[in-house]
Each structure stands twice: as structure tokens, then as C-alpha cells.
């Protein structure tokens, strides 16, 4: 590119530096500094305080509950995502756009409302409240409620990653497999799944991050019983409100570490998805 041409389609160096500086300053105030603070505050009082905050029984039970919520909600939403993507991407049917809208719905609902609606259904004054009490079942202020609220807020992640990719890939390969005599499950495992595995993984990673970090929805249905119905984010809130800042940030640093791992995986998988999209476009 000649110097004159570069001048006319690029900004002068000082403008470039100014814009980069402005963008980085903004990101520092709202992104980099908050992230650094979590780790700084967590270790400020030394490794002993840090470790003590994490191996404390209430903290461990919070970790356990968070893992349970993620272990139930991620597979459920994974199966749903595959089923929804299969019918939406591979078939043409009435009500498809309605189903698509419904899948997106949980993203636009406030987490607090996500918790509230389950209280209205399963709470003591709710639709099933009396029946549940008579049968000695507890959903709200207990583990099942926490799992349900987590399922709701992480509902769209896998479906949303799969649907556009599977739509772009079309149905020719599956049809060819069918003509050659493959059964439905064979088509799925050998043709469809290998084509979407990276997008699937991407969806699962995002779903898991949200499941482990959800606060608002879980807070409404949890009842905040220490050692029983506290997830890690709720445990952080309790510690923080008790002015145990170092402990609150120590537990936070675990979740922040998880967020960083999520970002790294996300970045790696994103490159793969882009590559598979490109291959697909060339077909």
C-alpha cells in the first residue's frame, strides 16, 4: 500500500494511539481493575486466611451445592439444546419461530423474577404448596428449588449455540446417511454430532459458567440456610455482609478463576467454531 493511500484510509498515528488509550482506559476502570481486585483482596491477609476461608465447612458445602446445581442443570439443558436444535434446524414446521422465541425468553427475564415464578408454583402459598407439604416434599428453600432456578437461567445457552450452526449446515449429509441406511441414532452420533461438537462444547462452557455463578434467581429460592442451601455466590454475600471481606474475596477468587478458565476455553473453542463455519461456507 502506498503512503498516500494509507493516509486516506487510515488514521494518523496520534489518533490511533489516542483511541487505543481511550479504549484501554475504559476497560481498565470497568474490567481489569475489578478483576485484579478480587485476587488482591483475597490474598491481602496472607495465604493462611485464604486457605482457612476455603476449607471452612460452610464454604465447602457451598462449593458442593454449586457443583450439584451445575451437574444437574448442564446435562438437562444439553439434552434439551440438542433436541430443540434437531427439530428447528433439520425440519420445517409450524410454530418454529414461536419455539425459538420461547427458548430465548429466559435471557430477557430478570433473575429475580426467575426465582419468584418458582416460589409461586412450589412455595407454601403456591399452586403445589399444600400438596408438597402433605407429602413432606420441599422444593423452595431447599436444593431442588436451587437446581430448578439454575436450570431456568441457563436454559438457552446450548440451544442458542447449536441452532444457527446446524441451520447453516443444512440436512444434505444427514439425508445421504439416511439413504445409505443409517438409523436415526447412527446419523446423530456419526454425522451431526461430529459437525457440531465445538459449538456444543462452547454452549456447555457458557452454560456451566452461568450455572455456577448465578446469584439473583438462586437467592430468591434458597432461604439462605448456612451449610445447607447456600451456593458459592450466596456464601460470598453472607461473608461480605458480615464484614469478612478477605474470606468473601477468597471464595470469590475461586469463581473468578473459573471465569478465567471459561474465557480461555471459550476463546480456544471459538477459533474452532470459526474454522468449522468457514469449512461449511466453502461447501
Amino acid at each position: 500500500m502506498s503512503a498516500a493511500k494509507r493516509r486516506s484510509t487510515e488514521e494518523p498515528a496520534w489518533v490511533r494511539r489516542l483511541l487505543i488509550g481511550g479504549a484501554l482506559a475504559f476497560l481498565s476502570f470497568f474490567l481489569f481493575v475489578p478483576l485484579a481486585t478480587v485476587f488482591y483482596e483475597a490474598f491481602k491477609k496472607g495465604a493462611d486466611v485464604y486457605l482457612a476461608a476455603i476449607v471452612e465447612p460452610d464454604a465447602l458445602s457451598a462449593v458442593k451445592l454449586t457443583l450439584i446445581a451445575a451437574l444437574v442443570s448442564v446435562p438437562l439443558n444439553l439434552v434439551f439444546g440438542i433436541a430443540a436444535a434437531w427439530c428447528i434446524a433439520k425440519f420445517d414446521f409450524r410454530g418454529k419461530s414461536l419455539l425459538l422465541t420461547l427458548i430465548d425468553l429466559p435471557f430477557s427475564v430478570s433473575p429475580v423474577i426467575a426465582g419468584l415464578i418458582y416460589v409461586l408454583v412450589f412455595g407454601l402459598q403456591g399452586w403445589c404448596g399444600e400438596w408438597l407439604r402433605d407429602h413432606d416434599l420441599k422444593i423452595i428453600f431447599a436444593v431442588p428449588g436451587i437446581v430448578l432456578a439454575t436450570v431456568f437461567v441457563t436454559f438457552p445457552f446450548v440451544a442458542r449455540e447449536l441452532i444457527p450452526l446446524m441451520q447453516a449446515q443444512g440436512i444434505e449429509q444427514e439425508e445421504a446417511a439416511r439413504v445409505l441406511g443409517a438409523s436415526g441414532w447412527q446419523i446423530f452420533w456419526r454425522v451431526t454430532l461430529p459437525n457440531v461438537k465445538w459449538a456444543l462444547l462452547y454452549g456447555v462452557i457458557l452454560c456451566n459458567a452461568r450455572a455456577m455463578g448465578e446469584f439473583g434467581a438462586v437467592s430468591v429460592v434458597s432461604g439462605h440456610i448456612r451449610g445447607q442451601t447456600n451456593t458459592m455466590p450466596l456464601h460470598i454475600e453472607i461473608l461480605y455482609n458480615e464484614y469478612q471481606f478477605a474470606a468473601a474475596f477468597a471464595v470469590s477468587s475461586l469463581l473468578a478463576g473459573l471465569a478465567l478458565v471459561t474465557l480461555v476455553l471459550k476463546y480456544a473453542v471459538e477459533q474452532r467454531v470459526k474454522a468449522s463455519m468457514k469449512v461449511n461456507h466453502e461447501h
Partner: peptide
């Protein structure tokens, strides 16, 4: 990569 941090970092943190 860090731009996505608010998607991944739990809101309480």
C-alpha cells in the same frame, strides 16, 4: 478475550 469477562464472572463477585 477479557471483554467477555462480565458474561463469565458471577455477578456477586
Amino acid at each position: 478475550a477479557l471483554v467477555d469477562l462480565p458474561f463469565a464472572l458471577p455477578t456477586a463477585v
